[in-house]
Nucleic acid binder design. Sequence first.
DNA 1: TATACGATCACCT
DNA 2: GGTGATCGTATAC
Length: 191
Amino acid sequence: MSRLTRDFYAQDTLSVARELLGQRLVRVIDKERLSGLIVETEAYIGEEDRACHASRGRTPRTEVMYGPPGHAYIYFIYGMYHCLNVVTDRVGFPAAVLIRGIQPQEGVEYVRQNRGFPLERELTNGPGKLCQALAIDQSLNGLDLCQSALLFIEEARAADPEDIEVTPRIGIRADEVAKRRPWRFLLGGKV
DNA sequence: TATACGATCACCT
DNA sequence: GGTGATCGTATAC
């Protein structure tokens, strides 16, 4: 099973967001594999994108986004949740793809424990939920997905372009221009 | 030092 | 459809 390489993440952000659909996100914990196919992503691109954390410039928090592609940008939100992003594009340009949803594959029972045994479809259908399910927190921030044994993305089945749905990003507070950008990608018409 | 708020979720009506 | 939980970060003082 081959892992996605630096070249993959070094593409422009919209291409990465699109091509991540159908790939397999893998978390190894206690030598056990937890994984799921990526079914929902959102792109956040550059300081000009008002919805992107880097729109207020380079800070300790956003530093990772300015670094090399292929690293994990994980932030803490609403005092209780974490969200997982993968850094894209080139060094010095802040951009990332938010992983918003996965379809559980391996280690489902472990995942159910982490999530407090909710309904199957509620396990990982949101950025905060999937981080809780895969035990992803800030200790993994900045991790190199091309090198790490703990967190990485494997090449699985690339999504058929016809199965990809494109919509505006959700949950963001920003100006109308940023809100309207069709930078959210879903697999198989999932909403 | 102080304060306001967010790329969310779960639970309520 | 509405709201409270809960705290790191950015920004203002």
